[in-house]
Amino acid sequence: MIPMSSRYHGVPTTQHTLPDGRVITHLRRRPLPKPKELSQIAEHVVAPGERLDVIAFQVLGDAEAAWRIADANGAVDPDELTETPGRRLRITLPHGVPGTGDGG
């Protein structure tokens, strides 16, 4: 069971049968949400040397929620989000959670 706090919660599984008959169950691809469709609740300006997991802990209370910031900013490579000091990061609610933010 995948916890609700995981980026993979709700992603369907599929099975692949190997030539020797073993069945491997795996997750299907997780489509990235469109950042503009996520309700923005805050913004964070990247300081020199910051790490995404530390930012996630500071603004979301959970270092393992760094994936939410990556989703909110359309990043496939989360490391790119903290490469440039001064970059403004959108902080949003997770995909599927309605909010009062303007979504953009």
Rank of each mutant, 00 (worst) to 15 (best):
R7I: 02
R7Y: 07
Y8M: 15
V11L: 12
V11H: 10
T13Q: 13
Q15M: 13
Q15I: 06
H16P: 00
L18T: 05
L18R: 10
P19L: 05
D20V: 02
V23P: 03
P31N: 13
P33C: 08
P33W: 05
P33D: 08
P35R: 11
K36G: 15
K36M: 12
E37N: 06
L38G: 03
Q40A: 15
A42S: 14
A42P: 00
E43K: 13
H44S: 09
A47K: 14
A47C: 06
A47S: 14
G49N: 06
L52Y: 06
L52V: 02
V54G: 13
V54F: 07
I55M: 12
A56R: 02
Q58K: 14
Q58F: 07
Q58C: 07
Q58P: 00
L60Y: 05
G61F: 03
G61P: 00
A63V: 00
E64N: 11
A65I: 00
A65V: 00
A66G: 01
R68L: 15
R68Y: 04
A72H: 07
A72E: 04
N73C: 11
G74L: 04
G74R: 01
V76K: 14
D77T: 01
L81Y: 06
E83P: 00
P85A: 07
P85T: 01
P85N: 03
P85W: 01
G86Y: 09
R87Q: 06
R87K: 10
R87H: 03
R88A: 15
R88I: 13
L89Y: 04
I91M: 08
I91S: 08
L93G: 05
L93E: 10
L93D: 06
P94Q: 08
P94G: 10
H95M: 02
V97I: 15
P98D: 13
G99W: 08
T100E: 15
T100V: 11
G101E: 03
D102R: 13
G104W: 04
G104I: 04
G104H: 10
